[in-house]
């Protein structure tokens, strides 16, 4: 903690080096989707269109950051034997808020995403970060870690959606990019199975660029 204060003074900014690391690491070298392989479940099903994946990414950043903050504030008063249940209840409450807000203000997105909003509860990233980080760190760091992991998850999600929507339907968020007059839409990309190929190829590219990340086993 002392290091953090010195660092932030040196840089003269609000966030020190350590804090920036918390935000940056999950974007590449410790990405929740491609390296930790957490939260694949709900990720793959919503990458068919860019707008759906954006809603999902925003919802996840909110749930991840808010639950990390709350659990970190409560961390000294939670008995370790029931910590899983407490974590689940906090997450479930936050997800319920997201569901109600979406149902009220973005009804089409709410219908499109159907059960996948509820499934944020069982998204391993949220629970994984609470267990691994928020339980042992102060609220500010836990909050930043939550945002970092939410963003790391979100940007891969949106990138996959861009690839799938562009090649599958020739559109980007509903706007026509590749005109049907010369581009024949690749129906494979619309199938759910293609999201597995896309993420497999993302992992391949990432590890080819950065050989340190290659699986040892």
């Amino acid at each position: 903690m002392a290091d953090t204060i010195v660092d932030s003074k040196k840089q003269g900014g609000l966030l020190g080096k350590e804090d920036m690391k918390l935000l940056k690491d999950p974007l590449h070298s410790n990405n929740p989707l491609t390296i930790q392989v957490l939260g694949i479940c709900s990720a793959l099903a919503v990458t068919g269109s860019v707008s759906k994946s954006l809603v999902m990414a925003v919802a996840l950043v909110f749930v991840c950051a808010a639950s990390s903050l709350i659990i970190s504030l409560l961390r000294n008063s939670i008995p370790s034997s029931i910590r899983m249940i407490v974590q689940l209840l906090v997450i479930a409450g936050l997800v319920q808020i997201v569901e109600i807000v979406l149902g009220a203000y973005a009804y089409t997105a709410y219908v499109e995403l159907s059960v996948f909003i509820g499934l944020i509860i069982t998204n391993c990233i949220v629970m994984g970060r609470l267990e691994a980080f928020a339980m042992g760190n102060n609220p500010k760091q836990a909050f930043l870690d939550g945002i970092g992991n939410g963003l790391g998850y979100g940007w891969i999600l949106v990138a996959m959606a861009v690839v799938r929507e562009l090649f599958g339907k020739g559109t980007f968020m509903g706007w026509e990019i590749l005109s049907p007059s010369w581009y024949v839409a690749n129906n494979l990309m619309v199938l759910p199975a293609s999201s597995l190929f896309v993420i497999g190829i993302f992992i391949w590219i990432q590890r080819a660029v950065d050989p340190e990340l290659v699986d040892k086993s």
């Binding site: 392989v37 199938l191 759910p192 199975a193 293609s194 999201s195 597995l196 190929f197 993420i199 497999g200 992992i203 391949w204 590890r207 080819a208 050989p211 290659v214 699986d215 086993s217």
Partner: peptide, 19 residues
């Protein structure tokens, strides 16, 4: 290929199985 070992290939196989 080394970069595809482990998880990468598991994803691609799952995709093929899905199809």
């Amino acid at each position: 290929p080394p970069a595809l070992r482990g998880l990468g290939i598991a994803f691609i196989i799952t995709g093929l199985m899905g199809i």
